[in-house]
Amino acid sequence: MSERRRHGGRNALLLVAALFALWQAIYWAVGDIALSSPLATLRYTAQLVTGEDFRMHLSDTMRAFAIAFVLSVVIGLLVGFWLGFDRLSGDALEPMIVTVYAIPKLTLYPILLLAFGLGLSAKVAFGVLHGTIPIILFTLGAVRNTRPILLKTAHVLKLSRPQMVRWILFPAAIPEIFTGLRVGFSLTLIGSLLAEMFASQRGLGYLLMNGIGLHNIELVMSVTLLIVVFAAAVSTLLLQVDRKLHRKG
């Protein structure tokens, strides 16, 4: 198992190195006009992140994201458990929720802006719109797919319903629920950033769009790099935990 872990680590490193090499190669091919080199971008990034402005944008994005994620988790778990227990509602609503997952949600953002106004709450609402769906779907699946033999066991042991949820259902469902949280985390982040890219005066998404307006290629690439690295790093971390939970389960 640690063997596997080491392989995974080596693969990830290899991949990152390959991506940087690709970047550098494209830079040599295309030149300064359209692209800044990896080194220049890193240098610019270092300068960027120490700036006062950047800290404001970052904290703005993070605040919206954090609130949105907490709301996504709470709503997602509640709805997920409800739909998992209530067979009829679950069967009726699950396909509808899956369908919502597939629509270009960005088109709904103007409605949120009209409803909440330009600011934090619209961003949060948009993050929640992205983040709750996977949490609902995974929780629903986890509750519904609990092995019937476990529930029979709970019955034989004469557990009360809360005890059953606490001691049997929840522990059995945790790996799947965690997967939902992991995906929900990523999508909430994506949602918050998208909202900022479309309409906002602050945040990393705004900074990105501002870079285009200013024709500042280094700024665009630095912010893109930061976002990608952050999202990939957190997601990798969560994925490790996820795999560990699933192996145990």
């Binding site: 990105l208 285009i212 999202a231 990939a232």
Partner: peptide, 26 residues
């Protein structure tokens, strides 16, 4: 495939739209 596996595993956690401004510039 093994090398690309980490990329596939985290791909949809990365906001692909973040590359859009960069593509516009290029």
């Amino acid at each position: 495939r093994d090398t690309l596996d980490p990329l596939f595993a985290t791909y949809y956690a990365v906001p692909v739209f973040a590359f859009y401004p960069f593509f516009i510039v290029v």
